[in-house]
């Protein structure tokens, strides 16, 4: 028996919104520790990894580890039937064919339940090394979203350069080129969540497809901060912490000169 209850049901809506344009089908693994998901996009250049700890749920029970093969677009359709203030409960048997979703309005006046058919999904599981990155940038997620959106109008590839002073995002295209530099905040600058912080061992410059960075920014509503982890010649990690429960991380392979 698997049962997981989230008082803030809208969180689940936001999570699926953050994944479904990148990944169509995925296995969500449920264990005593919580929910995890690892799925690549169709062209195998990026990967989305979701981690939700059991302690972040209001109620969590998982007697036996199970894997839920989900069509994320269909899950999104069902979650659209939940009100933004609804409590959402997920339920599945030990050898499930379906996932049951129950939505309860805050005053308990409306209770609905839906069953989503599960699928058998074969996936390639990538072993991601637990790497120490040369640069870790923490910045407001809204600012990152804006930069990616703005630069995508000009070109396809974004050059991200991280130095001690700041992070430079550069793009060039047929109409011209552009750069946005965000500088490290000084300690006195306002709110923690509005700050740009850079931890750096050595400067890093990498090229990435803006199209994919744009997919990742669908996770912006999940939190005020995004972290970018970069090392030379390895995929970037774009990590969105989800307050109190876990995180969504996106890995994107760099573009390389031929």
């Amino acid at each position: 028996m698997f049962e997981a209850r989230l008082t803030e049901g809208s969180l689940l809506k936001k999570i699926i919104e953050a994944i479904k344009d990148l990944v169509q089908e995925a296995n969500v693994d449920c264990s005593e520790e919580g929910l995890t998901m690892q799925a690549m996009d169709a062209s195998h250049v990026s990967l989305c990894s979701l981690n939700m700890r059991h302690g972040g749920f209001d109620h969590y029970r998982c007697d036996r580890s199970i894997s839920l093969g989900l069509n994320l677009a269909n899950l999104g359709k069902i979650l659209k039937c939940a009100g933004n203030d609804d409590v959402v409960t997920l339920k599945a048997e030990d050898e499930p064919d379906t996932l049951t979703l129950m939505f309860e309005s805050p005053n308990q006046e409306r209770i609905s339940d839906f069953e989503l058919k599960l699928m058998d999904i074969e996936t390639e599981h990538l072993g991601i090394p637990n790497e120490e990155y040369k640069c870790t940038i923490s910045m407001p997620s809204g600012e990152f979203q804006r930069i990616v959106r703005d630069l995508a109008v000009i070109g396809e590839t974004c050059i991200i350069t991280c130095t001690k002073e700041g992070v430079k995002f550069s793009v060039s295209g047929d109409l011209g080129n552009g750069n946005v530099t965000v500088r490290q905040s000084s300690a006195a600058d306002g709110d923690e969540k509005d700050q740009v912080k850079i931890q750096m061992e050595e400067p890093v410059t990498l090229n990435f497809a803006l199209r994919y960075l744009g997919f990742f920014t669908k996770a912006t509503p999940l939190g005020s901060t995004v972290k970018l982890h970069m090392s030379p010649d390895v995929p970037i990690v774009v990590e969105y912490p989800i307050d109190g429960i876990g995180s969504i991380s996106y890995f994107l392979a760099p573009k390389i000169d031929e």
Binding site: M40, S43, H44, V45, S46, L47, E124, H125, L126, G127, I128, P129, T157, N207, A209, V234, P235, F251, L252, A253, P254, K255, I256, D257, E258
Partner: peptide, 13 residues
Amino acid sequence: MTQSKLSAFFRSS
């Protein structure tokens, strides 16, 4: 510029 694949960096398990 070539878009590299993730599997080139991470081993499959």
